[in-house]
Amino acid sequence: MRTDTFPAPATVSEQAQDWLALDQGELTYPALDDTAGWLALAEEANRSTARRFPVAELPVTVEDLDVDGVTVYAARPDGVGKAADEPVFLWMHPGGLVVGGGDACRLTTARTASGTGLLVWGVDYRLPPRHPYPAGLDDALAVYRHLLRDHDPSRVFVGGDSAGGNIAAALLLRAKDAGLPMPAALVLNTPQVDLTESGDTFRTLAGVDNVLRSLRVPNALYAAGADLREPYLSPVLGDLTGFPPTFLRSGTRDLFLSNTVRMHRRLRDAGVAAELHVFEAMPHAGFGGDSPEDREAVAEQRRFLGRHGATAPEKEDA
């Protein structure tokens, strides 16, 4: 990031200003055929996530599940009771479609459960280089089908952050094409919904977003030769008719701001009730998670889910 050219504004909190002063660096990606290199990159990225989000510090219990052959982390916040009709937030982790699985997925799922106050099923969807598209999307669809066997669609909520937003939106396109009912609502936080990177902010915010750079190389690894314009790869290009009410979040320094605002307009054009939240000076994925702005974003998402029926049962006293 060019911090000399784009200093942190005084219009955001001190924590946000501190975050904007950091240069998160730029990854050097391996060659597309360097399987060992990609696996090493993922291992290091996942260790970094584990250091940032120690699950032991969160008031959440996480259970590892095997759901029709897919690993799922079921994270239940303390104080949230079990009930036959309890809401389930089916959540897809971030990671540029190449990292964020395993222990990192478990940890970010726990963090999502803590923020939403809901039972969250985090899908540890398969990733390249060993499992390129459509393996991860197939996993998400298998788990969604499973949930619908045991839950009314009005009690199922779907969402994802960044790359997880890609999987979540593509999942609903796949589900619609398969004749499955839509969930009660959809959450897309700074979603990676256009793998062609055609939007305006991929140029105007390049070097301004201090967290994210172009993901063209990981996108190519994930797509494995498929056309990036396919809607299951770039959901913003798909037919969004019939999608459920949708929450979208981004920031004025987010490289994926164009992704988010274009998805919002496409949803509105399709007659979907969609609300867009754009935060001042926020780069990709927020200000590190602990700023007042981050907490406000989490609260907005929680209110949205609550308005659409995501109220968790309280745990009965022993």
Rank of each mutant, 00 (worst) to 15 (best):
L137D: 06
H146V: 10
L147D: 04
L148V: 14
L97E: 01
G96K: 01
A84D: 10
T109K: 14
D150P: 04
S114V: 14
P87Y: 03
V80Y: 00
D66E: 11
T71A: 13
D64K: 11
P134E: 06
L65N: 03
R76P: 01
G69F: 02
V72N: 00
A83T: 08
D152W: 11
V70K: 00
E86Y: 08
D124N: 10
G100Y: 04
F89G: 01
P129D: 09
L148E: 11
P128Y: 04
A142V: 07
F89T: 02
R130L: 12
P94S: 09
T109D: 14
L97Q: 03
D150V: 11
W121L: 08
L147Y: 03
H151I: 14
G136Q: 03
Y73D: 03
V72S: 01
L107T: 15
A135D: 09
V88D: 01
Y73L: 10
H93Y: 10
V80I: 14
G117C: 15
F89V: 07
G117S: 15
L127T: 07
Y144I: 02
A135N: 09
R111N: 15
V72K: 00
L127A: 10
G79T: 08
L65V: 05
G101N: 14
G96N: 05
G122R: 00
V67M: 04
V99L: 11
Y133N: 01
G100R: 06
R155Y: 04
D85L: 04
G101E: 14
V60Y: 03
G136N: 05
H93W: 07
T112P: 08
L65K: 02
L119N: 03
L107W: 15
V123C: 13
L90K: 09
P128G: 07
A113G: 07
D150W: 12
A83L: 05
D124E: 10
S114P: 15
A83V: 05
D103K: 14
D138V: 08
T108Q: 12
D66A: 09
G79I: 06
D150E: 14
T71R: 14
L141V: 12
R106L: 12
Y133V: 02
P153E: 05
G100I: 10
R111P: 10
D66W: 06
L118N: 08
V143N: 10
A75I: 00
G96E: 02
A104I: 12
V62D: 10
D78T: 09
H146W: 14
A110T: 02
D64Y: 03
A104R: 10
A140F: 02
R130A: 11
R106Y: 13
K82E: 12
G81K: 02
M92K: 05
V80R: 00
A110W: 00
Y133P: 02
G122K: 00
S154L: 09
L118Q: 12
P77H: 01
